[in-house]
Amino acid sequence: MSISIKNCDLFYGDFHALKGIGRDEGMEISENKVTAFIGPSGCGKSTFIRVFNRMNDLIQNCKITGEITIDGQNIYEKSTDITQLRKNVGMVFQKPNPFPMSIYDNIAFAPRTYGIKKRAQLDEIVERSLRQAALWDEVSDRLKKSALGLSGGQQQRLCIARTLAAEPKIILMDEPTSALDPISTGTIEDLIRELKKTYTIVIVTHNMQQATRISDKTAFFLMGEVIEYDKTRQIFSNPKDKRTENYVTGRFG
């Protein structure tokens, strides 16, 4: 599934957090590609990624205008089924947040939410999700143990598996490796490359090398605006906007 954004504005009370994203010709996030959002802290990239699964709904006084279309439907219409939306658009967070329950129950959390109760069916989903997240071999003998006993990298892959168990089409990742060591980061990056064959992935990252390693397209955010959105190769070899150039070369100040 692709995402298209038309003239999206977002306010936190009086604060204008996102300013006219996709204002002229619109912004398109392509299917089966990895799209990276980069930019300095507070530039709105994390806010923007949360627009796609309406996580901003949880924040008081948050107002969104414009058109966000996923699978041909404006997700901010009244008729939108948020549960269905979040089933389609999964999310992985900066800090691994496995629930305080067993590995099995973590993965089965989403399917159970959607009403799957049959043991055999759940077993199958748990195994498939863990395999997809490259975690099965490490945890298959301790599915009933607490998920909190896993290492940081394993926990994050568990969170990815938990998201996959909902059978989403799009996966949002908000700095998924910023709390992890380089080896775990590498494993997750491999995983992302593998997952993009099946899913559309949007990732927020502060690590520009990570953006160059795994993303196909990159959007550079500054003060709530998308300054430049292009092929990652283009952004990092020959950016069109001086501000992008200054940011990626670290001249930013």
Partner: peptide, 15 residues
């Protein structure tokens, strides 16, 4: 209780 659980739960479509 960390907001991580709440976010994680909502992100999976839970009510």
């Amino acid at each position: 209780v960390g907001d991580g659980y709440r976010e994680g739960g909502y992100a999976l479509g839970s009510g």
